[in-house]
Design a protein around this nucleic acid. Structure first.
Lengths: 221, 221
DNA sequence: GTCGAAACTTGATTTACATCAAGCGGCACA
DNA sequence: TGTGCCGCTTGATGTAAATCAAGTTTCGAC
């Protein structure tokens, strides 16, 4: 939780983030419809969030990793609007939201931080809307890999070599395509020498080239 | 702005919402990249928000009407992340955000309200992700019409008879399809007796039937 | 180590939607 | 009261991705 708090602020904030929990792969952090109590800061591990349509269709709405906050969708109606499921053994800090509201009334920097986090989620979602609404399969997958790359890099891991914690099916759900298309497109990237993919481990050989995939097809010449 | 405020709270809030502006059709309320100062409450009229990809592609991320708040995406980075454009002559209240933060530290009910608004936007976006990621064109358009219907109804207008303020192109951008597909699908709905559409005026004949379109194709029998 | 279920890859075929193309209609403006 | 443009509709054709269908690999449970 990087923010511009003084030490004493930090101490007060500690009161918030003290309830730690461990989850195993497959565990639900929360379920859609559950009463909202807390936000959750992921300390270690990997989660997915998904919304379920009444007709059984599901849409993965995000993959969350260490340092990210989830549960913000639940504030609006006091009930969670999606499921959050651990994709690997994970640790989270539970942040009781009423405490957070109370404290953020006293600490402007905490208040500001909370607002930014909420807003960042909105911006993230808009980016996914752009991706789902106006990109082709190849571009979506390239954008997805680059996004993971950046986030791993920001955490001190390699931006070019990492494990996918999720299945092809889950990637497909997130990106609005079928698992076969995910598999095929990854194979194409590999065939083009952009990446090496072996099961869930990815190696990106050329970030720039992959970046160039995210954009309109090169028919403009 | 319906909320549970006492009268004196209400008076303090009035200080916030006093800067009124008028916009004509086509005017920008704000542009992507502009410095963030304020949220905007739409009093009358109709807006669209859109994100622009560097390669020129654009994605409409929402249509906003009276009573709705826009500009929340800008909080995270102190700069607007999308354009907001009036689709008809409109009036908005500018809400300076620093004032709002200040005041919401004193008024827990305002604080709570702000958090709910931010969270509601997140939930809305997730719904659009579901729509874009896992629905067919027909379902998306049905869902779109039903959403407009509900929102008009909530404002005291007819849920079954209304004007579309946006072009087929804009609907298509929002729903991740081409304008021709929007046009064709609307024609199909009309052919099936679900709606009457004449230019931008829509009449929904059967909300239930339209509702049933939002769901998996009836192959389950 | 063996078995069985999931996850994944790859190919053949189908399909929903995009693209290309032409004509119509309503509205702003002269 | 025309006239030109933009938004819209509709048809013909093309194509990206879905679907259907094997076959292979991986991995967890026993």
């Amino acid at each position: 939780m990087p923010m511009d708090l003084t030490n004493t602020d930090m101490e007060q904030l500690d009161e918030l983030t003290c309830i730690k929990h461990a989850y195993q792969r497959g565990d639900f952090l929360y379920r859609s419809g559950a009463k909202f109590q807390s936000l959750y800061a992921i300390r270690t591990g990997f989660f997915k969030t998904q919304v379920l349509h009444e007709d059984g269709r599901e849409q993965v709405t995000g993959f969350q990793m260490a340092g990210e906050i989830i549960g913000m969708d639940a504030i609006s109606s006091d009930a969670h609007a999606c499921d959050a499921i651990a994709l690997e053994d994970s640790e989270v800090c539970e942040i009781p939201f009423s405490r957070m509201e109370e404290l953020s009334r006293k600490l402007p920097s905490l208040q500001r931080h909370l607002h930014r986090i909420l807003s960042r989620e909105i911006v993230r979602d808009q980016g996914i809307m752009l991706l789902l609404g106006s990109m082709r399969a190849e571009e979506r997958l390239a954008a997805f890999l680059l996004n993971l790359s950046q986030r791993f890099a920001a955490r001190g891991y390699s931006p070019t070599s990492f494990y996918l914690r999720m299945t092809r099916q889950e990637i497909g759900s997130y990106l609005g395509m079928k698992l076969e298309t995910v598999s095929r497109t990854l194979s194409n990237f590999q065939g083009a020498g952009l990446i090496t993919i072996r099961n869930k481990s990815v190696e990106i050989h050329n970030l720039q080239k992959l970046q160039r995939f995210v954009g309109p097809p090169p028919e403009c010449g």
